[in-house]
Design a protein around this nucleic acid. Structure first.
Lengths: 231, 231
DNA sequence: CCAAAAGTGTTGGAGGTACACCCATGA
DNA sequence: TCATGGGTGTACCTCCAACACTTTTGG
């Protein structure tokens, strides 16, 4: 066991639950650890926060180092600070979720020395994770579900142009339940922030669906701010 | 300026937004600092996390030290980690809100050496706060508003026996808007988790109102778990 | 022409909103 | 008896849920 972490008796880290949506399934990016403790286990990607960077800056940097992407939607959702969550010492971790568009860019650039492999895992078939990462994941999915109700996060996971069926499948994957097709479409379109394009799906061997775009400007015009959505 | 904080170039703290409800107003407990930086400023109470305690344990301890109360409802809501949020060095703070029943126990026991005074302030008349505490407060009230919709937090702020008008005033204070009396009562009673008592308000110079109790058991029977409340 | 998914309306019920007056009590 | 808040019902409307068939397209 090596202890190459600076100030390891009291360190901050950031751990990421990185969500992607592909083939109708919600997926999470995991790394296979290349280091004790939990060598060979799957874990959420993450790293330590440097002394001269804010949490959000650290999150941006770490996500870039891990995936090669910038400007992903990300948000802090909980901080985990049990004394013994890390066997080698005290590490408090701020958990973020990130939403990325898998489509088109399947190859995540290989990562730090901490990871042997990086790969997407369907959220219904996750392996047992290292540390307290099961708990972190569980917490992330609950937050995601809740925020789906009042923030336009679904569109961060879809390609720019998408069909209503894709959107519905994504909602179903996040909420983990079936929705009624007609009701779903009616409601989504009634909001007025989906822009119908003059374009159709390509390469399918059945009737091609219309493509839509999320109109962020209209969305924010309709919901001045997030909070106006409720009561 | 003294720097008596241990490991001050990278410390954790917990800051509290402690809410109370009194005289129809939502209030927050602030301390007047007795120390540089921000000597004489009002600030949110808080303290450093020790190395051998989890965040929630630290929160419980700190809240007890500050107020003399245990078993208050409290919950972490965000972690603030700008590099320069504390002028003397890097301090990452995990913000919690706590809900306490002011009624009957107006005297908060005097506090640490960090505070000259401790007092309740109506949330609409807050002074400018030290550090980034304005931002932390703002964030807390938004979380509180949202959680009011799906968690039984109002009852943590009211005395055990309360009138429907008190409950309504509390909702109005948190949501910062007027509600319709008849609709509010109808809806609250329709949930079925308020127990009407054979008792009335005392000491008022007008018709005394019926008292109610929150029936936690029924609440959890009705809403198996928090998440079932939505969609 | 077949397989596959796209696309489309109506109805009933629940719940939300708007709204105004009489009642009970203590001073 | 008066001032103060307590307590109550109805009508409308919006939104949600349930539900099945026809259309389009590529192979």
């Amino acid at each position: 066991m090596e202890t190459d972490l600076p100030k390891f008796d009291s360190a901050f880290s950031i751990d990421f639950v990185i969500f992607g949506f592909e083939a109708g399934e919600l997926k999470v990016l995991l790394i296979e650890r290349n280091q004790e403790p939990f060598n060979d286990w799957w874990a959420l990607p993450g790293n330590l926060v440097e002394n001269n960077e804010s949490l959000d800056d650290a999150a941006t940097r770490i996500l870039f180092e891990l995936t090669g992407f910038r400007d992903m939607h990300m948000e802090q959702f909980h901080t985990f600070g049990s004394v013994n969550r890390h066997p080698l010492g005290r590490v408090i971790t701020v958990a973020y979720y990130a939403l990325i568009r898998i489509i088109g860019q399947k190859e995540i650039r290989p990562v730090t020395q901490y990871a042997k492999k990086v790969s997407w895992h369907a959220i219904n078939e996750l392996p047992k994770l290292a540390f307290d990462h099961d708990e972190i994941f569980e917490s992330s999915i609950q937050k995601l579900r809740r925020r789906l109700g009042y923030q336009p996060i679904a569109f961060e996971l879809l390609p720019e142009k998408f069909t209503l069926t894709q959107l519905q499948l994504l909602y179903e994957a996040i909420l983990n339940k079936k929705l009624d097709k007609r009701n779903f479409r009616k409601k989504m379109l009634s909001y007025g922030f989906l822009k119908e394009l003059d374009e159709k799906q390509k390469g399918v061997s059945y009737r091609a669906a219309k493509l839509y775009k999320f109109d962020r400007r209209k969305y924010f015009k309709i919901f001045q701010n997030d909070l106006n959505l409720e009561s």
